[in-house]
Design a protein around this nucleic acid. Structure first.
Lengths: 171, 171
DNA sequence: TGGAATTTTCAGAAAATACTGAAAGATTTG
DNA sequence: CAAATCTTTCAGTATTTTCTGAAAATTCCA
């Protein structure tokens, strides 16, 4: 049987390991995990110590997490340092990650595909050019629908609503 | 105005660049793109030449793409070599990618969260332990729902069906 | 305003990841 | 079944990504 501290440590390591699944690096995911299971706000120093990382690394990844809106800066009174606190609501965490990845990955991809769609192609190979254009168009359409699915879910009222809607479709 | 070859080249580079968005490396994505826009099956040699990569690299990434079910081996008669051909249907490409990522990323994550949920925690901090357990449970539930959304969409009849269902929810 | 406390930046170092090329292993064919 | 053709493997190398630590910048307070 584990102590609470051990369980938290295990979670931090696991979350760090899975971080690449949603497009962030190990350290960033570990810091996120650390703050997720911390009951109090933590300073850069605290994070450095807990994860045994350098100040630069801590600073950089804390900033990135703030940009992702997964954590926020806060003030602890009687103290000059900056402290950080994580968004704890799992639904909001998930939709926030979805939102960021959409922005960073799907949108640029759609831009690329749209650019290629719009490209005029010269030369004799009419048929081939048409096939190429169609491939791109299809990829664009599918990407667009994936994007919409993500977007619809992220804008759903929350976990309970999603669960109900899913019931209509599952099994 | 670009030639068809130039447009294809541009697509290959772009697709390579976006590859990391869906969990594969640049070369693997480029090979996929090359085969996607190729009207004929290509051999390892062809791929090596087109992308200026080594035999080892070509071989490794072609195998990975076969494992992802994004391309398949084929035979060109009167020829001893192995040739490769890509799945061209955009909907199937997308669902295949979704399926693989689910397997490689979401499932292990659920396993981890379930393991942590099941963990018994000793010590005096009952309240804290309960809060921790709740955090994990919530993350698990949200991950599970995300998984189900992906799964439902991937099993939908195809792009047309998805489009219709989306209409119920968008705007 | 001076200076102590804190945060940010970034060049170089370390670590992780991807690639090469040649050798070994298969497979086909004459 | 031996030679030719093709595929796979993998140790070493190259590239990319991430991290460190110290200096510079900023903020806060007396």
């Amino acid at each position: 049987m584990a102590t609470l501290a051990q369980a938290k440590q295990e979670f931090i390591e696991a979350w760090g390991g899975h971080g690449s699944a949603w497009g962030i690096n190990r350290t960033m995911a570990q810091i996120h995990a650390l703050l997720l299971v911390s009951e109090v706000a933590l300073s850069t120093e605290d994070v450095m110590e807990a994860l045994e990382i350098s100040r630069g690394n801590a600073n950089m990844n804390l900033r990135a997490l703030v940009e992702w809106n997964l954590i926020s800066r806060t003030v602890v009174k009687g103290n000059r340092r900056e402290y950080f606190i994580a968004e704890k609501d799992a639904w909001r965490i998930a939709t926030q990650i979805a939102r960021e990845r959409r922005k960073r990955e799907i949108e640029p991809m759609l831009k690329t595909l749209e650019g290629l769609s719009a490209m005029e192609i010269r030369g004799e190979e009419k048929k081939s050019a048409e096939a190429f254009r169609q491939t791109i168009k299809n990829l664009r359409e599918v990407t667009l629908r994936a994007d919409q699915v993500i977007s619809v879910v992220a804008k759903a009222g929350g976990l309970a609503v999603t669960k109900k809607i899913l019931k209509l479709f599952v099994k």
